[in-house]
Structures are given as C-alpha cells and as structure tokens.
Amino acid sequence: MTVQSVLKVSYDKLDHTCQEIFLDIACFFRRKHKDFVSRILGSYAMMGIKVLNDRCLLTISENKLDMHDLVQQMGQEIVRQECLKEPGNRSRLWDPDDVVRVLTRNMGTQAIEGLVVQSSLASQISTNSFTKMNRLRLLKVYYSGFLLRAFVENLPQDLDFPCFDLRYFHFKGYPLESLPTNFHAKNLVELNLKHSNIKQLWQGNEILDNLKVINLSYSTNLVEISDFSRVTNLEILILKGCESLESFPAIKGDMSKLREIDLSSTGIEELPSSIRHLKALQHLDFSYCKSLRSLSESICNLSSLETLILDECSETFYHHDFI
C-alpha cells in the first residue's frame, strides 16, 4: 500500500463536512492564519480544523495551518479526480493551466466552488467568465505588485458576478468604480479590494449580516462609503491609503462587533460624534491623516479602545486637540 493510499484512508473516514474543509485548505489555505480560514469557511470550520489536526492531516504552528506536501498532494488529487478531462467540472481550481483552460474556453460551470486567478491570466478574463459559476464560494484574483497597471487595463469593465454563495471575494486591482449591479453580497464574509478603482462601495438596502471584514486599502479613487447600519456584524474595516476619502459616515444602529478601524493616510477631516456607539472598538488608526482637523469628544466614550494612533497628523490637529 502506497503512502497516498494510507492518507486516502484517513480522508475517507472523515465526515462530509470535514472532507470539504480539508479540500479547501489543501487547495487554497495552506499556511494561512487559522482565524482567517475559520472565518471564511464558516461555523463548522473550527471544529473541522480540530478534527483534521487530531487525525494528523493538518498541523497548527503559530496559529497557522499547514500540512505535509504529500497530504496536500493527496487532497488536490481528490479534486482532480472529480473530472479528469474537464477542469470546469471540478469543485476547486487553483492550477494556472486548468484556470486558463476554463477561462479561455468559457468552460466554467456551477460545479466550481473555489477559484484562484493569477495576474498572468488577467487577459483571459471576459465579461462572462464567472456567469455560469453560480455556486462560487471563494474567488481570489491577485497580482504581483509591479504588474498592477497592466492587470487592471487588461480586464473588461463589465464583469458579471451572479454568485449567490460567494463568501470570500479577494480582487486586487479591481477595475470597476463600484460593485456590479448583480453582485450578491448576502453571504459575503470578507471583501478585499486592495488597490482597486472603486469610487463607491455599494448602494441599496440589503442587510449584510455575514460580512465581517472590509479591506479597501489603497483604493485611491474611493470618495464615499455608505453607512454601515446594514453591516451589523462588521469586525474589521481597513481604508488605509484611501487618500480621496474625506468623510466617515455616521454610525447608525447596532455596530457592537466592530473592533478595528484603519483610516491611516486617508483624507478624513473629522469623525462623526456617533463614533461613541462603537463600544467594541479596540484599535483606531489615524496615522498620516494630514487633513484631520479634530477628534470628536465622543472618542472618550469608546470604553474598549486600547490603541489610538495619531502619528504624523496635521499640526493644526495637534494644536486644537492637545494644546
């Protein structure tokens, strides 16, 4: 019996939920932070990770998930065996050759639940590349920093995302000025649009009670963010480097989970007095906010605040608030 066969026996003894968690980690999340993976994969992920660790299919070191190369290869081979001839009929795609085949021939199907697209394949993304992938849970489009300009210019401006199950949307250099009109965010847990061209995050009144992390850092064209009253479970908001953003919306409703806000290097001039409602806020970063004029006295009511960073703010701000 080969090593792979022995490992496969361990996999076969897992229940379906643990098998799915194992395959997601093997294909997409090796060496990622445990808390991040648990957040993305959902309520059963923490227990599943414990089971995988107990069965020696997964290791945890410094709170990061890892596995032996042979274990990862076994997991990825299980996915390949789902459909050897047509990668578009597999549940997860990460291999660049398989991804380019699916994108160039428009072979994506509803079988695909997870997809990683490298920057070198950007020119293969068409308007309808994701149209048939209506069960997509995980989508990551990333680039090497020096390829950013080419990456954005080679993308269509009318991407279609009819993905009702999408939980993780990571798209560096996102080329549009707003999310598509048919973007379904109801199940979204993390939105990561670093270095995007986005100007306004979204419109409408849909309650987004699953969304926990929003990262729009270095989206230099961002000029407006809607109020977060419908993102009731938001935990982390990162707007670092959004230099065109000059105002922060009033806090409405219950935002009892929001614990981190990064507004460093933005054009923010002041915070609304309603900031006092963020009772769980622990970390607030205003560093390099050259336009910051004052801080509302309401900030004194942030009972959980542990870190307030004001490095390199304007001299006017320091004069009015601390002298």
Rank of each mutant, 00 (worst) to 15 (best):
V100Y: 08
V102Q: 02
L103N: 10
L103F: 00
T104V: 09
R105P: 04
M107L: 11
M107W: 08
T109C: 04
A111C: 06
A111V: 05
A111F: 04
I112N: 08
I112A: 06
V116W: 06
V116K: 07
V117F: 00
L121Y: 01
A122C: 08
A122L: 01
A122G: 07
A122Y: 00
S123K: 13
S123G: 13
K132C: 11
N134S: 14
R135F: 04
L136Q: 11
L139K: 05
L139C: 05
L139M: 05
K140Q: 10
Y142M: 11
F146S: 12
L148A: 02
L148V: 08
V152N: 08
L155M: 09
P156V: 07
Q157S: 14
D158T: 10
D158K: 05
L159N: 10
D160L: 06
P162T: 15
P162N: 15
C163F: 00
C163E: 02
D165S: 11
L166M: 04
L166T: 04
R167H: 09
R167M: 05
H170D: 07
F171T: 00
K172M: 04
G173L: 02
P175W: 01
P175R: 07
L176P: 06
L176Y: 12
S178I: 12
T181N: 09
T181W: 03
T181C: 08
H184R: 10
L188E: 04
V189G: 11
L191R: 05
L193T: 01
L193E: 05
